[in-house]
């Protein structure tokens, strides 16, 4: 009778240990991305409740500004490393939501990609929790789907009750989808071993005119998916720009 060779012994051990593979995968995401978003209005920090004038010359005040960021990914040329299960609700009122920390694999990256909104799959996947919990008040109940971005306030140009302005932008299917992919390119490739700090600026003025001029006087309220909502999404998808990338 032959006894097992050292090689087959090693093989056996490898097979026995492979049952615990998952943790090894998680350990690969050994660096951290810290994404900070600063909301601005006309280049100055956004203050809720303060009157501003948009690029179309219309005065308005904001009291709610929230949106979803999801499917974060780091890009290196043609390589895209998608970070699984990343769903964040950024709410201007809550500072802690403006800093997002996720584990990422160490490596060299040329940019950051994110989905502005919640991907179509999660819109229809049943009851969710965390940022996607319906208690966040960002889910339409009678017409399934997430409100991808919400801007509320008032403007003397609005003919809605109490001069309200109310934009609930959503829709995830077909030509009226409000989902937009935002890609932020770094000025130079960044090598990340431990931590990478990416700081973005989101300029609220872009909401009204970045691509399509959408005067408040014409539309003060938009609450359903459709061509108009898609135009707002075109606009606000242009609100982000890179402030800095740091390797501390």
């Amino acid at each position: 009778m032959r006894f097992p060779s050292p090689f087959s012994v090693l093989l056996l051990i490898a097979v026995m240990l492979s049952g615990c593979q998952r943790e090894v995968d998680e350990e690969l995401s050994n660096a951290q991305l810290e994404l900070t978003i600063t909301h601005q209005s006309g280049g100055a920090p956004l203050q809720l409740g303060t009157p501003y004038t948009n690029g179309l010359g219309e005065t308005f005040t904001i009291n709610t500004f929230k949106y979803y960021l999801s499917n974060l990914a780091l890009v290196n040329g043609n390589n895209v490393v998608t970070i699984p299960d990343t769903y964040f609700l950024v709410d201007d009122e809550t500072d802690s939501t403006k800093t997002i920390k996720v584990q990422v694999p160490a490596g060299t990256y040329t940019g950051l990609r994110m989905l502005l909104g919640v991907d179509s799959t999660r819109n229809v996947s049943g009851a969710q929790t965390g940022a996607l919990d319906p208690v966040q008040d960002m889910f339409w109940t009678w017409n399934t789907g997430y409100i991808m971005a919400k801007l509320e306030g008032s403007s003397p140009l609005s003919s809605a009750p109490n001069n309200r302005i109310q934009y609930h932008i959503g829709g995830f299917a077909g030509t009226n989808s409000s989902l937009r992919t935002v890609t932020i390119n770094f000025p130079a490739p960044v090598q990340v071993e431990r931590t990478m700090q990416v700081s973005l600026i989101a300029e609220i003025m872009r909401w009204f005119d970045a691509v399509h001029p959408l005067p408040i006087a014409q539309t003060a309220v938009s609450m359903t998916p459709g061509p108009l909502a898609a135009q707002y999404a075109d606009n606000y998808s242009k609100m982000f720009r890179l402030n800095s990338v740091l390797i501390p």
Binding site: N123, V124, G126, A127, P134, N143, T144
Partner: peptide, 8 residues
């Protein structure tokens, strides 16, 4: 048909 998942 506005609702797309029994859970929601």
């Amino acid at each position: 048909g506005g609702i797309l998942n029994l859970e929601t």
